[in-house]
Design a protein around this nucleic acid. Structure first.
Length: 423
RNA sequence: GGGCGGAUGCCAGAGCGGCCAAAUGGGGUGGGCUGUAAACCCACUGGCGAAAGCCUACGCAGGUUCGAAUCCUGCUCCGCCCA
């Protein structure tokens, strides 16, 4: 490969994306093209921004001349994810998993270039692969599994894994099924080594144990020289969970998280996280990242705009990102222009207004409140405005007089708003 | 298989016959201060209802009681200990 391409390790390291490595010489390994993988759990039909880091890492790998594989944990999803005792242990069907994997591929494809299975001859050496571990895991028989892999797993060793130790101490305990997750993941690595010559596995910090198991298994059963690298857990300086907001997870799917909300999530990044996030979630060169991150005080808002725009562009494309940026910019700047396309909106028939529509109802219709009660509390606490006029009375009704420029704007708090276009 | 302990709201965790829609903390939302930031301060935080009130909720199913998250019985699940 061309020597002009940067070393993946350097790229990840300077962006703060390296937590641990299994091999001191990982940098040398990555000096020439390798095949590497990261696992994803296809338990929902959309990825959320927690998965952005792994996707970015795969994309960096691709840019550095390596071949990335995204492994769908279809096999593990088939037996259900037993972590979290209150979670319903839904066992996903193969059809659902396939559907989810398909959705993931679509969401990843703007960031990661995938090989086209239909035109193998046209695919490049760094085109990404997506595979489903159900394809090989479901073929394993119990006896065969024990015979081929059983002797190579030391339970003593497994018991020393943090993930296991924590669960043994925890009230929830650890089931045999969960105990076997790491076995499955180890087998994945070996399978990918044998079938794709994949020699490096990456993953979140929490995957460390699983990665190490895979490396050891590879050495024992195939004499393979495998390596792993983990990425740090993404935290927010304010201690809040990354990727969560008032309305739950921030998803990559525009259906689950409107582009406007997506943009706003990043736009509202705490100061202390802006620089790190620019490194994690954008491809901006580090000198630019450092420059933006060095801004202080109010100036840092410019960096947040760049962050929000860049991430939105990566995930949703130029056109949508432009709309979100322009709409948000106008709505929250002095202009207070809320006519932007990306502003959440819906149509409201004129005749409903002639009868009068209560604020409570409007808030619920707009999705700004989940129930009438919540809407009422919102009004009572002084958080609701119709256009720019505070609404203090829960009995207030919007009428044709409430329409301005063809719409009725309702705001909940400073940042949430919804526009009813009156038809 | 046996013994003991446990299961409470988004999460953690009090309550152990009426004062319980259930303490407290976290989270979330709204307000204040700001820069669409953080920190900090205040308020709110099951549903329906204008309200009075009604309904649903303390693992599940029954029972005792005027009255049960609280007592009894059975079941399910979890933890600890013993074999």
């Amino acid at each position: 490969m061309s020597t002009t391409k940067p070393n993946l390790y350097d790229v990840l390291a300077e962006r703060g994306l390296v937590s641990q490595v299994t091999d001191e010489k990982i940098r040398e390994r990555l000096g020439k093209p390798v095949t590497l993988y990261i696992g994803f759990d296809p338990t929902a039909d959309s990825l959320h921004i927690g998965s952005m880091v792994p996707i970015m890492v795969l994309a960096h790998a691709q840019r550095c001349g390596h071949r990335p594989i995204a492994v769908m944990g279809g096999g593990t999803a088939l037996v259900g994810d037993p972590s979290g005792k209150t979670e319903s242990r839904q066992m996903l069907t193969p059809e659902v998993i396939d559907h989810n994997a398909h959705c993931f591929a679509q969401q990843m494809s703007p960031i990661l270039k995938f090989a086209n299975p239909k035109t193998p001859q046209a695919n490049g050496p760094t085109d990404a692969l997506m595979v489903n571990n159900a394809h090989w895991l479901t073929k394993l028989g119990w006896i065969g599994l024990l015979r081929d892999f059983g002797p190579h797993f030391s339970v003593n060793r497994m018991l020393t894994m943090d993930s296991v130790k924590n669960r043994l101490d925890a009230e929830s305990g650890l089931t045999f099924l969960e105990f076997n997750y790491m076995v499955m993941q180890a087998i994945d690595f070996v399978h990918l080594y044998k079938s794709q010559n994949c020699t490096v596995q990456m993953g979140g910090q929490d995957q460390w144990g699983n990665i190490v198991m895979g490396i050891e298994l590879g050495r024992r059963v195939a004499g393979a020289d495998l390596a792993g690298l983990t990425m740090p857990l993404i935290t927010k300086s304010d201690g809040k969970k990354f990727g969560k907001s008032e309305s739950g997870n921030i998803w990559l799917s525009a259906e689950r998280t409107p582009v406007f909300d997506f943009y706003q999530y990043w736009r509202n990044t705490p100061d202390a996280d802006v620089k790190r996030f620019l490194g994690f979630f954008t491809f901006l060169p580090m000198n630019e990242v450092n420059g933006l991150g060095a801004l202080e005080g109010q100036e840092l808002n410019e960096a947040k705009k760049v962050l929000a725009y860049e991430v939105t562009r990566l995930v949703h494309g130029h056109a949508e990102a432009d709309k979100a940026r322009d709409s948000a910019g106008k709505a929250f700047s002095g202009e207070q222009d809320v006519t932007g396309e990306a502003i959440p909106h819906a149509e409201l028939p004129k005749q409903e207004l002639t009868v009068g529509v209560g604020v409570i109802q409007l808030l619920v219709m707009a999705g700004l409140a989940k129930s009438n009660g919540e809407a009422k509390r919102l009004v009572i606490s002084g958080g609701v405005r119709l256009h720019d006029k505070p609404v203090k009375d829960i009995g207030f009704k919007a009428t044709p007089e409430s329409v301005r420029n063809g719409y009725v704007l309702i705001r909940a708090g400073k940042k949430r708003l919804f526009r009813f276009d009156v038809k």
